[in-house]
Every structure is written in structure tokens, then in C-alpha cells.
Amino acid sequence: MASAVRAGRRLRRAAEGGELAALPAGLQAELEAALASQGALVPFSLLRRLHTALREAGSPLYLHELLEGCEIDLPEVPVPPRQMNGTLAEFGRQVRSVKAVVITIFNFIVTVVTAFACTYLGSQYIFAETAARVLSAVIVASVVGLAELYVMVQTLEGDLGKL
């Protein structure tokens, strides 16, 4: 953030030419010291005091006239070094991996529940009792679940491809 201005010709001429003679001696000396410093940087705090002193003295000079040609001094912002660990590409790979696992688990649950529901509804034509229908649905859902687990294990080992 800027905290000083680089003095322009108008401010230097006013300080050297005696246009600011109505200022208190301490403020005038501080302004001359700032103008003589390297880069002629005048801090904003000094400009505020200068503005107040010009108002109190009833000077015909206005601060914006004195600041004509001045440049705001913006300090160099240090650029932090990039962190190579934890890049976005690595994060993307991790998200894809987690996404694949979540989809696989969701697929497993949907397959087992669907097998149970289809067997339960389809067995009403074979069994009259609810207990027999539920038992047959549990058996079929278990077989489908074991088959699905077998396929998942083979996939994770790499026999059927990567996730």
C-alpha cells in the first residue's frame, strides 16, 4: 500500500521559492529534508500536516496544486515462491480417485437393493408367504452382492482396468 509520494516540480518549486514561508519552521524543515532525501519521497503524514498548516495560515495555495506532477510511490510487492507440493494437478487426481470410489460404492448399494426388490416382487408369483419371499430376496441380493464384490476386488487389483 502506498505511503508516500515522489515530489514533482511544483512541490519542489514551492518549497525552494518561498511560497511555503507561512509554514511553521519545523514543518518547513521536515519538508525540505524529505525533498532532499533519496527519491524525494514525501510521506502522506507530512502531506496531511502540510494541508492543515496551509488551511490554518489562510494560504492561497491548495494541496492539490502542490501535488501536480507528483507520483504515488508504490512499493515493490514481494512475490512468494510457488509451492510445488500440493499442486492443483495432484488435487485433481485425488478428487478423481475419491469420485471413482464413491461411484463404485453407490453402484454396489443400488445393485444389491435392486436385486432384493426385484426378487421380492417377482417371488410373489411363486411363494404365498411373506417370509419365503423375503428369504428368497435376501439370498438373491447376497449372491448379487458377492458377485459385485468379486468384480470390485478384481478391478482394484487391476485385472479389469483402473478406476
Results as ranks from 00 to 15, higher is better:
109 I>Q: 14
26 G>D: 10
136 S>T: 11
52 T>M: 13
142 S>D: 11
69 G>I: 04
146 L>G: 06
1 M>K: 06
54 L>F: 05
10 R>P: 05
13 R>C: 07
136 S>Q: 08
15 A>Q: 01
92 G>S: 12
145 G>E: 00
46 L>S: 05
39 G>M: 04
62 Y>F: 09
136 S>R: 08
42 V>M: 03
153 V>N: 01
121 L>D: 08
65 E>W: 05
4 A>L: 01
144 V>Q: 00
130 T>I: 14
95 V>E: 06
148 E>K: 13
25 A>I: 01
109 I>E: 14
17 G>C: 06
145 G>V: 00
137 A>P: 01
144 V>N: 00
160 L>N: 07
94 Q>K: 15
99 K>Q: 15
87 T>W: 13
37 S>V: 08
140 V>P: 01
68 E>V: 14
133 R>L: 04
11 L>Q: 03
75 P>L: 13
58 G>T: 04
33 A>G: 07
5 V>C: 07
74 L>A: 13
102 V>F: 15
51 H>P: 00
40 A>R: 08
32 E>F: 09
152 M>I: 10
87 T>E: 14
135 L>M: 11
111 T>W: 06
105 I>G: 02
152 M>Q: 08
75 P>I: 09
8 G>T: 02
145 G>D: 00
39 G>V: 06
52 T>K: 14
13 R>G: 06
12 R>G: 11
27 L>F: 04
9 R>T: 09
56 E>F: 09
90 E>N: 12
146 L>P: 00
103 I>C: 13
161 G>R: 12
95 V>R: 06
11 L>E: 01
97 S>M: 11
29 A>C: 04
2 A>T: 15
135 L>K: 04
3 S>C: 11
143 V>P: 01
127 F>K: 02
100 A>L: 13
155 T>N: 09
39 G>C: 05
125 Y>D: 10
95 V>H: 03
141 A>I: 02
129 E>C: 08
111 T>K: 03
6 R>P: 01
128 A>L: 15
15 A>E: 01
46 L>D: 05
119 T>G: 02
84 M>H: 07
132 A>Y: 09
54 L>E: 03
74 L>R: 15
85 N>I: 13
84 M>W: 13
139 I>D: 02
72 I>H: 07
29 A>K: 12
119 T>N: 02
149 L>M: 08
160 L>I: 10
49 R>D: 12
129 E>P: 03
142 S>Q: 09
119 T>P: 00
26 G>P: 07
124 Q>P: 04
48 R>T: 12
8 G>H: 01
114 T>L: 14
154 Q>F: 12
53 A>Y: 05
146 L>Y: 13
60 P>K: 07
128 A>H: 15
86 G>K: 07
158 G>I: 08
66 L>M: 00
22 A>F: 05
146 L>M: 11
76 E>Y: 08
65 E>V: 04
110 V>S: 09
67 L>K: 05
131 A>V: 05
35 L>D: 01
137 A>Y: 03
149 L>T: 02
72 I>C: 03
38 Q>E: 11
76 E>N: 09
55 R>H: 13
158 G>V: 08
126 I>L: 15
150 Y>S: 11
131 A>E: 06
83 Q>K: 14
152 M>W: 09
134 V>A: 07
109 I>V: 15
160 L>C: 02
87 T>A: 13
152 M>K: 03
101 V>H: 11
158 G>D: 02
87 T>L: 15
